[in-house]
Design a protein around this nucleic acid. Sequence first.
DNA 1: CGACCTATCTATAAGCG
DNA 2: TCGCTTATAGATAGGTC
Lengths: 173, 173
Amino acid sequence: MGRRKIDISEVKDANNKQVTFSKRRTGLFKKANELSIMCDAEIAVVMFSPGDKPYSFGHPSVHVVADKFLQQNHASNVEPESSASHEVGDILGQHQQLSIVKCHISEEQKKATELDKREKEQEAAQLSQYKELQVSPALQRMVEDYVDAVEVSESMLLLAEEPVDLLVTMTKE
Amino acid sequence: MGRRKIDISEVKDANNKQVTFSKRRTGLFKKANELSIMCDAEIAVVMFSPGDKPYSFGHPSVHVVADKFLQQNHASNVEPESSASHEVGDILGQHQQLSIVKCHISEEQKKATELDKREKEQEAAQLSQYKELQVSPALQRMVEDYVDAVEVSESMLLLAEEPVDLLVTMTKE
DNA sequence: CGACCTATCTATAAGCG
DNA sequence: TCGCTTATAGATAGGTC
């Protein structure tokens, strides 16, 4: 899907790997969002970049989907393997989140522990740029209250055609 | 990406919605797999079809990624919301799984509770068709032991360019 | 770096058997 | 209900600023 065909094997160049990760991560989240909208399906995506930074997408939320996934499994009985136990609720619950409508949060976010009041304000300022576009007032409110989001990808705003509740969390690479 | 442009809104026709879900689900898993390979990133995808059937993809496994995601969150301290608690280990642990190399499992699988010995054998037979292609012996072994897989998408086999450990679980729609 | 810019490569919406 | 096929819309590799 680019100027030239490439085979699906690990990208050796560290820099290029990072670029590829960012581009494809965005694409994957976009696809997940479209699928959740078009088919009214619940989807959760969690991933770690080569730099081990966490990213996630969820509709209506990673928690809801993970929880439901678990429930269903209780009905089935396949290879009941008991591993380390952690609360699903914590997966997203304790993670920085942002419920948004018609948009996608991307990049530009430092870890919660690295954020200070001022940085948050800058983030809010950056986000306001996009408010004028086609984002609902509901999103604006949520965005203003959000603690970790930094930038709303304009391209994603333009791509969403209808209101959707989705959750996207990211940490600066 | 088809004969004609369509807007990203809920597909009303139930049948078409199902078709769209299947196609895009396959595409999403393929993208997730490519990303995990190219960037050596850990990724977990869990979703429910409009018919509420569970599907998941994980590299190296949904469990590993979910667990790691949780760990990292412990370091952060953002909106610690306590919700229903379930063990992350159960998410994939109790779900039908299949660790495969260089391939993607698709469709054609009934719930574990609906599977009987004979069906499993048929599945194994179908899978053997693809073994000759370019799948590693490791995959063959895993596939033979697998209890729920039914069909390995040939197209996916052809697309993967290098060994990868990934987990894909599906239930027949 | 991060944001854009397009030539290309893919994913897929419709069709067809 | 299913797969395949094919014309297009969409994603993105490589480059530029």
